[in-house]
Design a protein around this nucleic acid. Structure first.
Length: 284
DNA sequence: ACCTCCCTGGCC
DNA sequence: GGCCAGGGAGGT
């Protein structure tokens, strides 16, 4: 069993897997009751009571995702937006199940199923926004979605041209491409053999091409495995199952282990106060 | 383009 | 008992 002391943060694959499971559970369902156990989780609501008030009796129409944001579209032009933050996850359970610690909000649907937001660190949030509020929110500053709308090589090269910032922090910048976080940035960079320490503008077109393919390949593979649950099991699927991409991680959390591609010892380097795992052998 | 802050379980 | 992880917001 791979030993990882870092905590995982939900990224695009985890949100996408969550979205797919929820879609089969709550589409067309009507909200019966809402409770907010921790006010901080609804902090992005203009008035704290808006969350409960606006969700009352609403019906779920469709579920979409942009980057790491889950957007549940309701009737009456309302949008139930969730960000899982560092430690959040969504559970779907019957309402007679005991409530876990750190359950921050509970939304019960007609029929008795409950959607519960569990988030120990409360970096995540839930909010119900009108179309106008959504349009003026930070969501419209997100770059194109890394899975469904990855920029072309030409666009990517154009964006990176002249950039002195390192490629790793650029990948984490959600206004460049939305959805990639610390784990999948490291995994993508390793797959395309580009060092996280390279200035963004120094990448040749051929490397940018490999990078965008690597991002796509990594995200799709992670989604197929149900995302990544680390040892702390902070991230689980809404049905309680684990995401099994952990064993497929090539560099993340593997400091000192041999690279699967060239055998060099994987290094951990702190870049802009975030851990980066990379192989000095093949990521020159 | 950079810094600080938020928060808490788990580790030393 | 203190430190650490880190996405995103807000500030400079």
């Amino acid at each position: 069993m791979l030993r990882i002391q870092l905590q995982r943060m939900p990224e695009l694959p985890e949100v996408e897997v969550t979205r797919r499971i929820l879609e089969s559970e709550i589409r067309e369902k009507q909200v019966a009751e809402v409770s907010v156990n921790h006010p901080r989780v609804v902090r992005r609501q203009k008035h704290p009571t808006d969350f409960s008030d606006r969700l009352q009796e609403r019906t779920v129409q469709s579920l979409r995702r942009h980057g790491k944001f889950l957007i549940i579209e309701l009737d009456a032009g309302l949008n139930w937006v969730t960000h899982l933050g560092m430690s959040g996850r969504i559970q779907m359970v019957d309402n007679d199940q005991p409530e876990e610690t750190h359950t921050r909000t509970v939304v019960r649907f007609v029929g008795g199923r409950e959607l519960r937001f569990v988030d120990p660190r409360t970096f995540g949030f839930m909010t119900v926004w009108t179309e106008a509020e959504l349009a003026s929110s930070t969501l419209n500053r997100l770059g194109p979605d890394a899975l469904t709308d990855l920029p072309s090589v030409r666009e990517f090269v154009g964006y990176l041209r002249g950039r002195t910032a390192l490629i790793k922090p650029l990948l984490l910048n959600q206004s460049v491409v939305a959805g990639v976080g610390n784990i999948y940035a490291d995994e993508s960079l390793h797959l395309c053999r580009v060092s996280p320490l390279r200035p963004g503008g120094s990448l040749a077109a051929d490397e940018v091409n490999r990078l965008r393919i690597a991002i796509r390949t990594t995200l799709i593979a992670a989604i197929q495995q149900g995302g990544t649950s680390l040892e702390d099991l902070a991230y689980l699927l809404p049905d309680g199952k684990t995401g099994d991409f952990l064993d497929r991680l090539r560099v993340y959390g593997r400091e000192g282990q041999g690279c699967c591609h060239c055998g060099f010892a994987i290094r951990r380097t702190v870049i802009r106060s975030r851990s980066s795992f990379w192989c000095p052998g093949c990521q020159a």
